[in-house]
Design a protein around this nucleic acid. Structure first.
Lengths: 339, 339
DNA sequence: TTGTAAGCGTTATCAT
DNA sequence: ATGATAACGCTTACAA
């Protein structure tokens, strides 16, 4: 119920608090005898250091913050897993917050974490985020920050992501090589860098293969690229451009919407129209037809981000200079039945 | 970079720390003039109270811990959303930890949270958990604990769950009413209460409808009830009991495995064999055929659990007696194409 | 080898 | 209305 303190151990043993503290922390200048006594009593009383006091003294919380756009999401939940795995190794705890894809929330969450004085922050930006003052607040506050997945290239901190542009480029080249010629793109909203990059990759691939880029074949997913976006845009594209033979979707979830609509309306995948997703959600191998997609190694992204963050936290503690890193995790195409 | 303190404000204003503290906390015994001066300077310096010091003084962390078996999981990620929503309202932060369905991890995570002196703990037990000493540690430590979803009926604390037994009973009755007679059950492992309860509901429904319970129609999902479990058991049941006309699966994920196998082998759902899931995962309405299932309101479960926990934290702070609650959230059958 | 004392930044009690 | 002082529990120079 009430936690024992160094003071209690000290008084029970008739020695000073200092000696108890030293004994428990394995300092050399404690006689083996007292050391043993202290450790025994501590164990017996079930002593654990009061983290509040330790935090206050050391100015470290052994806690990091993680802000993600949304939790109920295959990719992000796997990222979290990767982060937790690294945190665990270092006895760090992770406070998880959602931005719900809203800039306003994102700002608020940052404030909460900064007030809590977490040792570092890991975050993936919301789709709305188009200015970065709040991120600079973190930086000027001296709190290490690592951006992952949905990053802002202009912000001066470490970043972990995939090369969305290249991944999309390769994906569309792959479609072209398979013989598809009239390829639509269901793109994400205009602010997130990865949405922009995937679009640019798509466009470049067409151009490099001498296919005229046609902006009317690009459909916007403005519901945060969800299932509904895919479904609605599939309906639209069929009405407006029945001649297309493939769709490259910004993410698997959108692709699932497309598949649903095509299955309902009897459009055959991939014979009539091929569908290519992005991210390799768990469900991609289960839907009918199984979705071809690009893997986006969430665990690795979470893991690497955390490793970099913990490195920077350590460097900062030692007042060592920090060199920001920008890491790109490799991706590849997973060919299934939909292309 | 370096955070301003009460001391700094006090010295800049030439008044005492006490007065600054009082002014900032809106105490009545501060003159309006000094109050205004303090607040202005605080704002200007961007003062935020040092949470470490506050924690130490108040013995509260304004943080709760959440331990779940696994993060990459439709149901649990929605639960988290519900918890975060309530925490946010109260300016509480949430530390999330996974047990990975392992008792050993569960114990470790509890220790971490207790050492961190969180104000309360929310948890869903791992499938392995079959003794509850570690839970009693939390309780005897005086930290409020609320169990949700995978609960232990014997542990003396508040609980939030669905009535798994009734839900399963209703589900199987529904199948029987639709004319299915030879109903197999793919059950979860033997320890989790909800796995036991769903099985008991299944059995009771058969008996109440004068259908002989046949233990050979019950298949164990021992991979934590995942996709593979469904797939493998589907294969097995077809080999051993081709005469069945329906399967009641412990969870949608298992049902997806069944559907996959049946789709691959040309077994028609629901004509040849019906499939009923549990939990209403997002994907259930997307797979082909769309899966009939039971909704399991994760958001509500998370929300209610958090509300109860925060209530208990408050009561404890006021040294008021705590009466444990056991709440059951309503469920219902969602009929789609697979039954 | 052991202990004293100051300090981390806040809050609460009690004087003034 | 304001402030001095102690206390929360720990760490760490610095003495002894």
């Amino acid at each position: 119920m009430n936690n024992p303190t160094l003071k209690e151990i000290a008084s029970q043993l008739g020695i000073s608090i200092t000696t108890v503290s030293k004994a428990l922390k394995g300092y050399a200048d404690v006689s083996p005898l007292t050391k043993k006594a202290v450790i025994n009593l501590a164990k017996q009383l079930n002593y654990t250091p009061n983290s509040f006091a330790v935090n206050l003294r050391t100015k470290e919380s052994k806690t990091i913050g993680l802000i993600i756009p949304t939790l109920v999401h295959d990719f992000f939940s796997i990222v979290i897993k990767g982060v937790l795995a690294e945190a665990e190794k270092r006895d760090y705890l992770v406070i998880i917050l959602q931005s719900n894809e809203k800039l306003a929330f994102e700002k608020k969450q940052i404030e909460l974490l900064l007030n809590k004085r977490v040792d570092g922050i890991l975050m993936s930006l919301s789709n709305e985020t188009d200015d970065f003052k709040h991120l600079n607040t973190i930086i000027s506050h001296g709190t290490p920050l690592v951006l992952f997945d949905k990053i802002a290239k202009l912000v001066n901190c470490s970043k972990v992501s995939i090369n969305d542009r290249k991944a999309a480029y390769d994906a569309v080249c792959y479609l072209i090589n398979k013989g598809y010629k009239k390829i639509a793109h269901f793109r994400g909203s205009y602010t997130p860098q990865n949405s922009i990059d995937r679009f640019l990759g798509y466009k470049k691939a067409l151009e490099d293969n001498n296919i005229q880029y046609d902006s009317s074949l690009v459909y916007l997913c403005d519901h945060n690229a969800d299932f509904q976006d895919g479904y609605e845009n599939a309906k639209k594209v069929i009405a407006e451009h029945p001649e297309i033979d493939a769709i490259f979707a910004i993410t698997d979830l959108v692709a699932f919407g497309i598949i649903k609509y095509f299955n309902e309306t009897g459009i055959s995948i991939p014979n009539q129209i091929a569908v290519l997703g992005f991210s390799n959600w768990f469900m991609s191998s289960i839907v009918t037809p199984k979705l071809s997609t690009i893997n986006q190694p969430g665990f690795e992204i979470g893991k690497q981000s955390a490793i970099i963050l913990f490195d920077e936290i350590k460097l900062k503690r030692h007042n060592a200079p920090i060199v920001f890193k920008s890491i790109e995790i490799e991706t590849h195409i997973i060919e299934r039945e939909s292309t």
